[in-house]
Nucleic acid binder design. Sequence first.
RNA 1: CGGGGCAUGGCGCAGCUUGGUAGCGCAUCUGCUUUGGGAGCAGAGGGUCGAGGGUUCAAAUCCCUCUGCCCCGACCA
Length: 571
Amino acid sequence: MRTSQFSIHTLKEAPADAEVVSHRLMVRAGMIRRIATGIYAWMPLGLRTLRKVENIVREEMNSAGAIELLMPAVQPAELWQESGRWEQYGAELLRFADRHEREFCFGPTHEEVITDLARREIRSYKQLPVNYYQIQTKFRDEIRPRFGIMRAREFLMKDAYSFHVSEDCLGKTYQNMFDTYVRIFERTGLEFCAVAADSGNIGGNLSHEFHVLAEYGEDAIAFSSESDYAANVEMVGVTETGLVRAEASRKMQKVATPEKHSIGEVSQHLNIDASRCLKTLLVNGAEENSVVALVLRGDHTLNAIKATKTGAVAAPLTMASEAAIRQAAGCAAGSVGPVGLRVRVLADPGAAAMADFVCGANEDDYHFTGVNWGRDLPEPEVVDIRCVMDGDPSPDGHGTLSVARGIEVGHIFQLGNKYATAMKAEVLDENGKVITMTMGCYGIGISRVVAAAIEQNHDDRGIIWPAGIAPFQVALTPVNMYKSVRLREAADRLYEELQSAGYDVLYDDRKARPGVIFADMELIGIPYRIIISDRLLDSGTLEYKDRRNIDKTEIVPMEEISEFLRARIEA
RNA sequence: CGGGGCAUGGCGCAGCUUGGUAGCGCAUCUGCUUUGGGAGCAGAGGGUCGAGGGUUCAAAUCCCUCUGCCCCGACCA
């Protein structure tokens, strides 16, 4: 491709609202343009990378035996009512009515549609197992879209759904998909890891997430120091060791803590460690208009997923309103404590093992010190509701955990028969008996992979594409080509040559100064660059630069360039 | 959803306090010069200052309403 016939429109400055690296660079490089909040247009350059990712996914899915189809983005409400999700899904589901006032939604996912198709198409066990997939635009009306393409409302996703006669059979496809995902992410050239994820349903359902490790990841992943255990912190059980409650040794006292609301402020004010303070979070309970107290050690963090799984709190977990807090505790949030609190109290084991602790006094600007369970207040219900931290023991018994950030780019899931039962997706088995199909689903955020790749691969000059997903492999950058006919002819010839040798070349034939060309090619991140100039022509050589190691220049004889590139690309 | 902020040419911003009819940098276009790391000079085009209403002789500027966008929070307890 010649830049003169392509659309290269780079910016020196990024829009003020772009905060993360991938967003800034995608806008500056001219890959995307924002159309509305969380909604972006893919410009020609960005689309090339998006398509490369898409093609890798498609090739690997095909060779794994999955079958591509394309389902509608607009889906009728009836299917969602049948599965029960029309009510459950909440505000993230974009709903609208057509001219006849029939209700529809823009699909955030396609379990309902695929299950509807499967129940109509699949009649016999002989047709199973089958794994359908599509690559298609999804819409999720996120509360707070941000980070550009990373958390957009409209995004491109590969979603696959498999159908089986048995859990056993599902297990095989699941493993096949796991292996396929590993191959896909290896081909993208990204550093990733597969982690055990929240399994949600009962029945031993399995789920794994694939994360690209990056500083700005929105998920926290816990790794074991001594085994290959890795899991989303949401689901890591805390293995408490050596938790023995000390004897009460102090009397409970009320102390003034004016204007001290956070654990940090209170512990500093009283000059004690945060781990000696108790934090009491009032959240909305599962019963309508009820409030539940979640109690944690001051230095611990609530795990909303675990708390939700206790069944005691409203799902998804939400904090009680200011008014509800005042009604339940008689004070503002900053002074709430479990002593004398007349709501259900769930305490994390770490909090339940504390003695002589500090907690809110349920009176504005007062806390208690020297508080003890069983003496000053009833023993609490004890349940694991905190997030693991660096240094916690690994649940598999090997080593300790450390926590890193990841961007979730893939998620595979054993669904079981949740949708198949709700929507009566049944087949006849080999005995002529009606059975409900078992399902799996497998997603990859295609557009998010592009953003994640940039988060993981950039420097202060711009993007550094992994070769497998670069918009172009090779940048051909002539120096002052319009001053020299012979240079122009040589560059044109070289371009033809590289193209017929099968390289994906971006030939920068713009009438621009070399600095502009170099800066642009670096910003848009083309991994391999060849420089041709009049001066080099005299010695019959070219210069080669690797985007990853931009300060190093190699001189290559012109006739060897194709071989040279081949070696670099295959390395 | 709660709180805060912003809205001025394609992008980044100034002007608003103290009303007087819009400006800078980048980008774009033309010409000349320049040419191995985002050039220089000269010139040009492009903005109903988010929308609506009000105050005033006069509103980007002051007041009200609305809309859009961004950030923070939803873990002060």
